[in-house]
């Protein structure tokens, strides 16, 4: 049983019940200054463990980079 979602523009299947915290742990390489948007809204860090991803969710996992 998997949950089809889009993460950073790419379709992917996550394990059922996967949370934003799980996704961040898998994607961020232990980075602490990360932010997550889900379906166009910010997911506050405090809500990551309690936010389960739903089928069709569009998620952006963002990290700092060089920029003007």
């Amino acid at each position: 049983m998997t949950v089809p979602v889009t993460v950073n523009g790419a379709a992917t299947d996550l394990a059922a019940g996967a949370t934003v915290a799980d996704l961040v742990a898998a994607r961020s390489g232990g980075h602490d200054r990360v932010a997550v948007a889900r379906n166009g809204d910010v997911v506050p860090r405090s809500s990551w463990p309690s936010t389960s991803l739903q089928p069709g969710d569009v998620v952006e996992v963002l990290a700092p980079t060089a920029g003007g």
Binding site: N8, E60, A63, T65, G67, G68
Partner: peptide
Amino acid sequence: TVALRRVEASTNGAMLEVLDRCGVRLLPN
């Protein structure tokens, strides 16, 4: 100033370490 981008494309924790060591304040854009 620093920016935010998708984590796979541009994750660079080392950059923040450098800036932290320099003692500068970060201004996200």
